[in-house]
Design a protein around this nucleic acid. Structure first.
Length: 257
DNA sequence: AGCACA
């Protein structure tokens, strides 16, 4: 018998993530996922819903399958908000992918047709039932009213992450007067809503990581401390220009002291 | 555990 492999799902651009911490709010979750996954390649979309059925899970849509594969392997079990992430490929192609490869229109058309057909059949069945019942008893038990198709998933704002521009080489930063190497990094151009957890997830991957400090009054900047300047230097190079959101390229320099 | 997207 086929040994139970965790990956009997064929590779696809989308990574299905589960065992996510369900207490994290959706927008933050999406941003954090974007932040740690984008190191593997351009991300087209991150989908997460908080419905009963979908909570604790998310879909990270890469442009390329190779990036998805890297992510599945390297982030498997990664401690994310205190829970090890579980990763597999998604079972079905994401809409973002379908939009790129041109199959989205076809899919929509097929869905519309299927829906129409189902409606037609349901109507036919109802008519038949009514006729049968009517001819036998004359009772008026026809037409069961059908509730349940009111799918309004609108939770107010729906600022799904815009399609990330394709992989562009990290722009060299024109820092003014760079401070000399030291164990503390200065990080700029962060999204305002960034928090220590999100940042620590990025920086803790580098050896010697000690802590991240946000500056209470000031949005968009942070300090990250390492054991020594070699380690801070490695993290600096590794995360320079990192796209923490589609529109925020992190700027990392040595802190002035 | 749980595979969605307007």
């Amino acid at each position: 018998m086929p040994a139970e492999g965790t990956s009997d799902i064929p590779p696809i651009e989308t990574v299905y993530v589960n065992n996510l911490n369900e207490r994290i709010n959706k927008e933050e979750l999406k941003k954090s996922l974007y932040a740690i996954f984008s190191q593997f390649g351009p991300i087209l979309d991150v989908v997460a819903r908080k419905t009963y059925r979908m909570r604790g899970q998310a879909f990270v849509v890469f442009r390329d399958i190779t990036a998805a594969t890297q992510a599945v392997r390297q982030l498997q079990g990664f401690p994310f908000y205190d829970q090890p992430m579980k990763l597999t490929y998604a079972k079905a192609k994401s809409d973002a992918t379908a939009k790129l490869d041109g199959t989205f229109e076809l899919k929509q058309k097929a869905e519309r047709q299927a829906k129409r057909k189902a409606e037609r059949e349901a109507r036919a069945a109802a008519e038949l039932a009514a006729k049968t019942a009517g001819s036998k008893r004359g009772a008026d038990e026809a037409a069961g009213d059908e509730h349940g198709s009111g799918k309004r998933g609108r939770t107010g704002s729906e600022p799904a992450l815009p399609v990330a521009p394709s992989a562009m080489p990290v722009a060299p930063s024109l820092s003014t007067q760079p401070a000399g190497p030291n164990p503390i990094l200065f990080v700029e151009n962060l999204p305002a809503e960034v928090n220590a957890m999100m940042l620590s997830m990025l920086f803790q991957q580098f050896p010697g990581y000690k802590e991240v400090r946000l500056v209470p009054g000031k949005a968009g900047i942070a300090f990250v401390e390492f054991e020594d300047e070699n380690q801070s230097g490695a993290a600096k190079r590794g995360l320079q220009g990192f796209k923490i959101t589609p529109q925020n390229l992190m700027q990392v320099s040595f802190a002035k002291r």
